[in-house]
Simulated scan of single mutants.
Amino acid sequence: MASSDTQTGLDGVIAAAKAHTEKGQAPGRGLPPVHLWNPPHCGEIDIVIKRDGLWFHEGTPIGREALVRLFSTVLRKDPDGYHLVTPVEKMKITVEDAPFIAVRVDRVGETLKFLTNVGDEVEAGPDNAIRVEMDPKTGEPRPYLHVRRGLEALIARPVFYELVELAQERVTPEGPQLGVASNGAWYPVGPVGAHCL
């Protein structure tokens, strides 16, 4: 049987992610150090992360939650797009919007703590900003949370409702804004008086 250093393709991604997750390379989730790996580009793999956060392989949903979480640990955003990365190869995948979804938020003291659909626990703050874009097609807000190294989570609609409920008014150069504070940073979520959703 090949080692994780010599396996390639999808099996190689699975083997590398398992090997490095089990070693506990990073606190919390044992994230592999994908930012330190510089493997050759090996083409594309037919994996699509849909706008709703569901992962598909060759047109079929990946039903195993543990496998999706495993793949998420070796996901990296490079200037040319999103890739699954191992020490020996990187394969481009398609991400329709953000790779993750923020499915929960809790106010703990002065901190907003989020949980993503793949198990990441993220504290909003200077290193993990919240930003809100307006969807050019619908005119509705598209709120995002930075998770790690350029990877973002779309904040799910019910979670964004919670943020709006927590928001307080501030005067900004753009006029009065509703926003939320976390770890000493303040993030606007919409203009005062606007029905954000």
Rank of each mutant, 00 (worst) to 15 (best):
F100C: 09
K113V: 15
G109W: 10
N38V: 00
E140I: 04
G81P: 12
N38H: 09
V68N: 03
K90V: 00
G139C: 14
L84Q: 03
R69V: 02
P126Q: 14
K92W: 01
L67G: 06
G81M: 06
L67W: 01
V85R: 12
T94Q: 15
Y82N: 07
L75G: 08
H41W: 04
P87I: 11
P39A: 06
P39Q: 09
P40G: 04
G125K: 10
V108M: 02
V108Q: 10
D127T: 14
S72R: 01
P136M: 12
E58T: 13
E110S: 15
E121R: 09
D135R: 02
R131P: 01
E44N: 11
V88Q: 15
N117S: 10
L115K: 14
T60Y: 11
R107H: 01
D120S: 08
R107C: 02
V147R: 01
P39L: 09
E44L: 00
Y144K: 10
M134Y: 15
E133T: 14
P143W: 07
H41L: 13
D97Q: 14
V85F: 04
Y144G: 06
F71Q: 03
K77G: 00
D78S: 10
K90E: 10
G139T: 13
N117Q: 13
R148S: 03
T86L: 00
I130Q: 06
V132F: 09
Y144E: 15
L84Y: 05
Y144D: 13
V108W: 03
F71D: 00
K137L: 09
G63H: 07
E140G: 02
A124I: 10
V68E: 01
A66I: 02
L75V: 03
R148V: 06
W55A: 00
D97M: 13
T60V: 09
G59A: 12
D106N: 15
